[in-house]
């Protein structure tokens, strides 16, 4: 089983968000970067579990500069066999997906796993784009993935329930909560990661289709209006008359 897992680098979930250069750039000062949680906890770990149960390899791919190497090493420490970095700053989703598709197109991966979205730009874009570029089926926001007899059985949360899907052959899948449990790398893994291959590959030329012009922070809340716990009629009145929410 040949598995490709797409990894992205994002600011830690507790990061205070701020912008510089006239609100055109995210302020990376003092920011701790991590593997996007959906990629690490769900896509990568489920990929490893499937490999362990069936034999095969898990390769990770990241489009980014050398600043992404630490998060790639962590994925190798968790258990990926080898890693690929396409040496290009990730620009828009289209060009990032194009790099991944170009790399994957002649490698016959059985599956390409991604996170459902990055927690910084919240795109939910790369998976569907890679699937279309490679003409593969795409299942988004999967919460379970099992493989048996060349068929993948996948569960997704749908509005008001769940759906069980079946796919034959190679596919692209984006992972949501439920797919697997987070794995903490152990000392042996961390040592082994040092000698695992991290192949840096030059990017292919592609024009982005979108760009971010500027960022804005949400307007500050006016401040909380406290209501006496013994006067819930007042809260109901405020929600009805002032907030017009009920």
């Amino acid at each position: 089983m040949k598995i490709l897992v797409c990894l992205s680098k994002v600011p830690d979930t507790t990061t205070r968000i701020a912008f510089i250069d006239n609100n055109t750039k995210f302020d990376e000062k003092d920011v701790q970067f991590i593997i996007n949680p959906y990629d690490e906890w769900y896509a990568l770990v489920r990929g490893l579990e499937l490999k362990e149960a069936n034999t095969g390899t898990v390769t990770t791919i990241t489009v980014g500069g050398a600043d992404t190497d630490p998060i790639i090493r962590k994925a190798l420490a968790i258990g990926a066999d080898d890693a690929v970095r396409i040496d290009s700053p990730a620009s828009d989703a289209y060009s990032t997906a194009f790099q991944i598709a170009e790399y994957a197109k002649d490698k016959a991966f059985d599956m390409i796993l991604l996170g459902k979205e990055t927690i910084d730009y919240n795109g939910s874009q790369i998976g569907g784009m890679v699937a279309e570029m490679l003409d593969l089926p795409f299942i988004s926001l999967a919460s379970k993935l099992d493989i048996a007899g060349g068929k993948a059985t996948i569960e997704c949360d749908i509005p008001g329930g769940t759906q069980v899907l079946e796919v034959e052959g190679a596919f692209v899948l984006s992972a949501a909560k439920g797919m697997a449990e987070q794995r903490i790398p152990n000392m042996r893994g961390i040592m082994a990661a040092r000698s695992k291959p991290l192949n840096v590959i030059p990017a292919v030329a592609v024009e982005p289709l979108t760009k971010t012009e500027s960022y804005q922070l949400p307007p500050a809340k006016a401040g909380v209006k406290l209501v006496d716990p013994d006067n819930m009629a007042e809260l109901v009145r405020l929600l009805h008359e002032e907030a017009k929410a009920i």
Partner: peptide, 22 residues
Amino acid sequence: DLTGKAVAPRLSARLKAGLVTG
């Protein structure tokens, strides 16, 4: 929504059309 999240990026790649989600 769930379907849009799967379809919009595919369409973007198919038509080489820039995509903004959400």
